[in-house]
């Protein structure tokens, strides 16, 4: 019997699993910072680069990043894309409106932070634009506190 002659059932799997991810020492510092509307990074003692969000290891130097630094709230839009789709639970759906996602540099030594960029027509976005962090009205130490970046 060839493959195409087989009979199939296609059951949808009605399960939504719950996981309890521990965020660890460094991400805790990052979210703690959010409570005071601060953006924290960690600096490598080897190459002096700053990771945002902070993390334990610099893989390039294989060194523990043991210094936390606060980053400015304003930075440069280095790269961006305009999204016409959204990925939701692994499926591709059209977006309601085109939206802007950018890589923002907050310090010349810092890694680029991926964030939504709002407050301008996506077609107007240019690399090198100055943008600033916009926080939620109520910050609570959650990933969503740093809501988006907007033209400075």
């Amino acid at each position: 019997m060839g493959a195409t002659e087989e009979a199939f059932i296609t059951p949808a799997i009605p399960m939504d699993f719950t996981y309890n991810y521990r965020i660890g020492l460094y991400m805790t510092r990052y979210l703690e910072g959010f409570k005071e509307r601060k953006i924290m990074g960690s600096r490598c003692s080897g190459c002096r680069k700053i990771a945002v969000p902070p993390r334990k290891y610099c893989g390039v130097c294989n060194k523990i990043m043991d210094e936390f630094v606060e980053l400015p709230q304003e930075g440069t839009l280095e790269n961006f894309t305009v999204g016409h789709v959204v990925l939701e639970k692994g499926r591709l759906n059209p977006a309601e409106n085109p939206y802007l996602l950018g890589l923002v540099r907050l310090d010349e030594n810092a890694s680029l932070l991926l964030a939504r960029v709002e407050g301008l027509d996506p077609a107007e976005a240019r690399p090198g634009m100055r943008v600033k962090a916009v926080w939620k009205d109520q910050v609570e130490g959650d990933y969503g506190d740093l809501d988006h970046f907007a033209p400075a």
Binding site: Y21, R22, I23, G24, L25, K56
Partner: peptide
């Protein structure tokens, strides 16, 4: 292990293996 995330926990064993062997990355 409530105190660490997955990669942080793994890195502890990596550090100990380097310590144990005297090797470096």
């Amino acid at each position: 292990r409530r105190d660490v995330c997955i990669p942080e926990m793994i890195s502890e064993a990596v550090e100990n293996a380097f310590k144990d062997s005297g090797l470096t990355p």
